[in-house]
Amino acid sequence: MDKVRVKSMMPPGHVRAPAYLRGRTGVIERALGEFANPELLAYGHFNGPKKPLYRVRFTMAEIWGDAAEHPDDTIDAEIYGHWLDPVPDTP
C-alpha cells in the first residue's frame, strides 16, 4: 500500500485536512476520484480545478504516540491529494 505523509503546513482558509493529522504518515486505503476543492469552493470559486481525494489510514500510535489508547486501532480520513506527499519505503 502507498505510504503518504500529510503536509504539516498551517495556511489560513477553509481547509479540510484536520490539524491533528498534519505531519502524520498513513497508507492510502482507497482512491475516491476527483472532487471540487473546498479551499476554493468556500470562497465562491465553483469552477476551479478538481483535486484527487483519498482515504488515508493512520494508526493511533502514529497520531498520538505513547499517549495512544490502543496503538493498533486506526483512523481513516479523507485527504485531498495536494495535502499528501509520498513517503518512499525504506529498505
Binding site: R16, R55, D73, I75, D76, E78
Partner: peptide, 15 residues
C-alpha cells in the same frame, strides 16, 4: 475486547 480492532472513520470531506 483488546482483540477487536477499532477503526474510527473521520468524515472530513465528500464521503
Amino acid at each position: 475486547p483488546d482483540t477487536t480492532q477499532v477503526r474510527v472513520h473521520d468524515s472530513t470531506a465528500d464521503m
